[in-house]
Design a binder for these strands. Sequence first.
DNA 1: ATTTTTAATTGACCGCGGTCATTTTTGTGT
DNA 2: ACACAAAAATGACCGCGGTCAATTAAAAAT
Lengths: 197, 197
Amino acid sequence: MPKQAMAKAVQQRTLKTRAKLLDAAQAVISESGYEAMRVEEVVLRAGVAKGTFFSHFKDKDALMDQLIGAEIDRHLDGIEALDAPTSIAEMVEAMLPMITFMTCERYVFDLILRHSGAAANADIGPIAMTFGRHAEVVTKWLWEKPFRKDISAELQAEGVQAFMVQAISLMFCALHNSVTPRERLETYLSAWLMPTA
Amino acid sequence: MPKQAMAKAVQQRTLKTRAKLLDAAQAVISESGYEAMRVEEVVLRAGVAKGTFFSHFKDKDALMDQLIGAEIDRHLDGIEALDAPTSIAEMVEAMLPMITFMTCERYVFDLILRHSGAAANADIGPIAMTFGRHAEVVTKWLWEKPFRKDISAELQAEGVQAFMVQAISLMFCALHNSVTPRERLETYLSAWLMPTA
DNA sequence: ATTTTTAATTGACCGCGGTCATTTTTGTGT
DNA sequence: ACACAAAAATGACCGCGGTCAATTAAAAAT
């Protein structure tokens, strides 16, 4: 039997509970940050039992995936509303708010990295979706305003993501944080998108 | 008082115990893989108490850092013995054994990523060291046999690492594993090191 | 209305990483 | 030899994510 056919099975009680859990989690995070979030604290505030949490979310990471994914999506909305950047500096500028969020906590960045690719073929999580979306946006930019013509816009976009991750990673590295992420990313993307040899 | 002056303070008992712990850990890993390693199992085999483990290693990750770092170092020894590659294919070929190890388990790759940058200024862990070493080796290659001349060998090497990480990440992504890591990395590095526009 | 089926919730329980006051061992000064 | 101080080892204990058999509430069948 196809899943679609039995979509009726979900009760509104379920939606209420899930909303309570999401709200409670968001509240905790707003107060104390992502890393400090405890499942026990969330269920306490939501007024449900611990087991209920795990019948709504596969594990703690799944909740984080949703919340963080939603936040990134909000930033992507802003990015998507922009015109295609005409310079590297503009491109970096456009991506900076999203990057700032991604690096607000070490914990957040690690989680994003872990979820940036879909683990199983079926469950492409919210964060993995945002990476797909980001690649699309950048691809569109590069399609409209091409920097390099020897390789496809898709490949260029993949490189942009790779360098974005690299630039962010080095932010958490005590050895390499003398330069700002903006500067570093500009250096990378100039070399990647505007090679002169 | 400088640390050097009081180096005497370590007893042989300490070295014995640490060796026992490392051996036990390696044994467990050889049998069941990295992910399956449990601190309780290790201390049981080593014949010491649980607390002893944590007086030798800050946490479980620190042990993993050492073991995995040592393994990567072994691969780097092999890489370093090679001549500077004259083509992208050769370069990828040289790095492939190391990459294969890094991707032997999802858990291993995640841990490597988390430790690839030094967290605090003081403690540059074994894995972070290997990333530095790898960058040096690639820089030397690019110095001897330059691909691009518009950017420094160091920057080229940073890009190689960024693309290596990207290629590996996509291996664990169910959506993008139709192409082999070798192929993907060759595509990336060709575009990065031999741009034609 | 009443039974039956199915979905949702519960909380005691477990696994495992990590801590710390206490005890044991080792090296040192007398 | 002995006392004493410093280092190392111990294991009971804790925090927290995650499980599952049992219970309760909701929808469907009668």
